[in-house]
């Protein structure tokens, strides 16, 4: 308190502590006063060069009577990293699942709106879900490896798609892809920063891995199918800092070739790796969507600013 008398005199050259005090008092006012801040259309408009990989328009999702996503429209640029941030329960996972129609699998979910993948409507009744999900891969919030060996987990997708043939028949017909499988397994695991830990026990059951290893295995499994878009739901939530930074490097690397949409609760992570950021706030609304630098340096919405600086959520 005695400190504040000093700073009062020199408001121009505010010290750090002075700044904090000021924003603190400001924020309590705004969150109290502007909790029903109107979302302006312009905040969600994000202009970028090049083509959109995914364009979402007026997406609404209901779980029974629960309106979980409200009128979300968003264009996701090609070969870039898009971060989705927002408080828990605001509908990030729901939104992510809409992008490869995984919400179709939830009985209670009702989806309305349009999502286009390079101009093709994915909610078309004739859409080929197998092809769609091959092109848009997904890593889930909690690790879910199959109760099979590490190798089989990775080669599962390609095998089912007929890209890898194994077994006696394939061998008899001279189309055995064991070598190809080995390369694929190694490549995918290296990409997911797991190879060094498991290279000597590829035939062990994947359930014997630690939680963080399982999550990286799931990432590798997703990469093995070679999708165009990769949806990641908090892929690093169970990882230690080293593995996290490996995953972050991987995401940056991937963005050269792939379109990555990533949900994260880690602001620094979002700021580090993403090109653009979308902020969802409680109630399932997309509040602001813009360049990552813009969002983190000077967001338009007061609520977004509060959320990012940690005053609200």
């Amino acid at each position: 308190m005695s400190n504040s008398i000093n700073t009062e005199a020199s408001t121009d050259t505010q010290t750090n502590s002075g700044q904090t005090i000021e924003t603190d008092s400001l924020s309590t006012e705004t969150t109290a006063g502007e909790s029903d801040e109107r979302i302006r259309e312009a905040w969600r408009q994000y202009d970028f060069d090049g083509n959109a990989k995914l364009s979402v328009e007026d997406l609404n999702v209901w779980y029974g009577d629960d309106h979980a996503l409200k009128d979300v429209s968003m264009e996701i640029p090609k070969k870039s990293v898009t971060a989705l941030i927002g408080p828990s329960g605001c509908g990030k996972s729901t939104y992510l699942r809409c992008l490869n129609r995984m919400n179709d699998r939830i009985k209670a979910a009702r989806i309305d709106g349009s999502v286009e993948l390079e101009g093709t409507e994915i909610y078309d009744p004739n859409a080929n879900l197998v092809e769609l999900r091959k092109r848009i891969g997904m890593v889930f919030q909690s690790p879910n490896p199959f109760p099979k060996s590490i190798r089989e987990n990775i080669s599962y997708g390609p095998r089912k798609h007929g890209d890898i043939n194994k077994g006696l028949l394939a061998r008899l017909f001279g189309r055995d892809d064991t070598a190809k499988e080995g390369e694929l397994v190694e490549h995918s695991l290296k990409q997911a920063a797991l190879w060094d830990e498991v290279s000597d026990r590829l035939d062990d059951n994947a359930l014997g891995l630690s939680g963080g290893q399982q999550q990286r295995l799931c990432i590798a499994r997703c990469l093995a199918v070679d999708p165009e878009v990769i949806l990641m739901d908090e892929p690093a939530s169970a990882l230690d800092p080293i593995a996290t930074s490996k995953i972050e490097d991987l995401v940056e690397e991937l963005s050269k070739e792939y379109t990555v949409v990533i949900v994260t609760h880690n602001m620094q992570q979002a700021a580090r790796i993403s090109d653009q950021t979308a902020v969802f706030l409680t109630g399932g609304e997309l509040v602001e969507y813009d360049d990552t630098d813009k969002i983190f340096e000077s967001p338009e919405s007061q609520r977004v600013e509060d959320y990012i600086t940690g005053k609200f959520g």
């Binding site: 999900r133 092109r135 199959f146 599962y156 798609h161 799931c218």
Partner: peptide, 8 residues
């Protein structure tokens, strides 16, 4: 879910 997300 995991299998479906791989397009199987």
């Amino acid at each position: 879910d995991a299998s479906a997300a791989l397009g199987v």
